[in-house]
Every structure is written in structure tokens, then in C-alpha cells.
Amino acid sequence: MMGGVTQLRRIVAGLVPVIALFAGTAPAHADLKLCNRMSYVIEAAIGIDDKSATATRGWFRIDPAACRVVLQGTLTADRILLNARALGVYGTSPLPQNGSDTLCVASDNFVIAAARQCRTGQTPAPFTQINPTRADDGNLVAYLAEDSEYDDDQARLAGIQRLLVIAGFDASPIDGVDGPKTQAALAAFLKSRGLAPDFAQSPNFFTTMVEAVQAPSSAGLTWCNDTPHKVMAAVGTDDGKTVVSRGWYRIEPGKCLHPDVTGQPRRLFSFAEAVDAENRTIRFKDKPLNWGGDSQLCTRESKFEINEQSECGNRGFSTTGFAAVDMSSGGKTLRFAMPR
């Protein structure tokens, strides 16, 4: 990759979410469901470890404050394991990806019968063992939570606030607490989409919000991926005093994404590159397929937010060429396309 750039994951908005799996002992005689008490729309994959065989299945999309059944019927497996990721609209996954087991997953919906030996189109991912508890309805349940320890109502509101901010509506801070600022941002978003005020209570509301932040916008910076490859991007902001570089953001093929730029920076910078399933830079005509420029900013392979841009190499960072973005018209869409 250019400048040694690869991508792992990124902490979003200063929050360090964790998967909280409320352990306990319960007989495995019911459906298993996952409940999301995070402020992110997540996708989950499960691993089923039964004696000498291990299978994986995913992805199960779960909105904030929602639950989803991921296994039905009597559970006879020796162990149940979990991997979870946030949607690409949040940048890279804010979930800490670690676990004692490495199992195979695929980029799209999948069922893998022998999940310890990855084949073409499959990649290894860390899975964590979970110990679900029995819920009041008789099902087994495992909760995904973050450090803020939201309840369901708070998780849903924080999830709405987070997507409003990404879409360019000021609903900060993202804290799950309702107030005039959040309500004003929500009303402005609904009006911009021609939606009724009560649409926010619709079960499809998060889907609508995710689609909104994956479409070009007339305000702020928008990245659009017109290639058949996954694109990883980083943004730089200059407020006149400090230049901050931040990444990585994952942009799926055919999708757009708005980096979460707050305030009114004087200048913006952008760098992006196409990567394969193993996060290796795609090469086109023997050159890295990337989109940058002459402004040298600091980056690193994993998630980063760097406030000082001098002597990148001496501080253990890579130096990467970003392009300056002309924001004089109030909004700018950068489209990443295959070279002719």
C-alpha cells in the first residue's frame, strides 16, 4: 500500500465500544437472539463449535435497541462464538475485533461448514465465546453494549444522533439524551427527505438514515466509490491552528460516505485507496489504485487520529500524499473511479 497504508479499524467519536456479553448459566433449549444496545447499526456473525466441527454464519444486521434471532431450536453446540462489525457508514468498525478463536467469514451473507480453514473468498476473523442468559420469553439472549451502558431507549437515540451527525446535521454530543438540539437536527433531516415527523418511530427508520448517509450530499465532503473494489479513505482537517489526519473509513463499491467532519475547518484534505479482501492495495497497470495529492500528512496502518503532521517517520507513522479539497461551494463530492 502507498506509504505502508492498510486498514484495520477506527475509534469513532472518541467512544470505545466493547462487546458486553452478559454471562450466565442457562440450559440451551431455546432460540438464541442477539440484542444491540450500541449506538451503531451492526452486523454479526456467529460460530458454532460442536466437537470436532466448527461452522460460521452471517451477517445478521441489527439496529440499535433491536434484537434478532440468530439460531433456532435446541442448542447442542459445545460453544457459541461471535464476531460483530459496524456498518461502513461509520468509517471502519468501531468494535474492538479480538477473540481467542480465528474463524472464516465472507464479505456478503454466508454459511461456512468448515470454518477453521479459509478458502477462496473467505477471510479469517477473530471470534469471542459467548455465554447467553435466559430471557423472560424463554429464549437465550446475548447483549452487545458499549462503555456508555445505554438502555434500549438511550441506544436508539444515540444511534439516531450518530447518523444525523454523519449526515451533516448537528445532533452532538452523541449521548443518548434527548433535547432541543437533537430534536431540531432530527426535524431538519426528516424535512430534507420529505418524511413525516412520526417517521422516526418507523421500524425502517435506521435503513432510511443509512441510505441517506450513503448518497451524495450538497453540503460537506462526500466520498463515492464507483469502483468494483472496497475503498479505504482518510480525511485531513485544518482549522488554521492544527492539521488533523484521521482514518480509516470503509466505502463499499457503489456506495457513498460522509466523513464525520465537525466545525468549520478552513481546509480539507483527502486520501483514498482501493483494497482487496485482505486489505492489500489493488494495483492497476502496475500502479497502486489510489486517489491523493501533494499535501503530506501522517497516517498509520491501523485506526488513527494524528494532531501533529511534522516528522511522521520519526514518530512511527507513514507519510501519505493527500489532495486538498476545494470546499468553496459549500459541498464537494469526490468520486473514486477506475482509470481509463
Rank of each mutant, 00 (worst) to 15 (best):
I174E: 05
L186K: 00
G254V: 10
K332A: 14
A158Y: 07
N225Q: 02
E146N: 11
T56A: 02
P96H: 10
T262K: 13
S310H: 15
A233P: 13
F199H: 11
Q161W: 06
C224P: 00
T102L: 15
L289Y: 08
D151N: 08
L87H: 04
A66I: 12
D276E: 07
W223P: 03
E252Y: 09
T281F: 01
L103S: 00
G179Y: 04
A115F: 04
F271M: 00
T120R: 13
N225T: 03
S107F: 15
Y40D: 01
T299D: 04
E278D: 14
A184F: 08
L103K: 01
S107L: 15
D286M: 13
F322D: 01
F269M: 08
C67Y: 07
H258I: 02
T281I: 03
R283F: 13
I306W: 06
T102R: 15
L82V: 05
D286N: 14
C104R: 00
I251D: 03
N109I: 15
Q154G: 09
T54D: 00
L186I: 01
G313A: 12
Q296S: 15
R134P: 00
L297H: 01
Q161F: 04
A13Y: 12
S93H: 10
S107Q: 13
P180L: 04
C35T: 14
W291C: 10
I62L: 08
K33G: 06
W223A: 15
P27N: 14
A337Y: 09
A30P: 05
G47C: 04
T242H: 13
A65R: 02
A155Y: 07
D147P: 12
S218M: 06
I11G: 10
R119I: 08
F304R: 00
D286G: 09
A212L: 00
S295H: 14
F271H: 02
Q97Y: 13
P96N: 09
D152S: 09
G91E: 02
Y143W: 15
Q129A: 13
D276A: 08
N290R: 15
I80Q: 03
T222K: 03
C118P: 05
T208L: 03
A113L: 12
V141G: 06
L140A: 00
T237P: 02
A13R: 07
Y90R: 03
I62V: 09
S328H: 10
K33S: 10
A53V: 12
G24H: 05
N225H: 03
P180S: 02
H229N: 13
R300W: 09
V244T: 12
M232F: 11
H258N: 06
V261D: 05
L163F: 03
Q122P: 01
A114M: 11
F271W: 01
G88V: 10
R280E: 01
E43Y: 14
C256A: 06
G168I: 01
Q117T: 12
N83Q: 06
S148G: 08
L257I: 12
C256V: 04
W59G: 01
P126G: 09
I19F: 10
D260G: 13
M327H: 01
T128M: 11
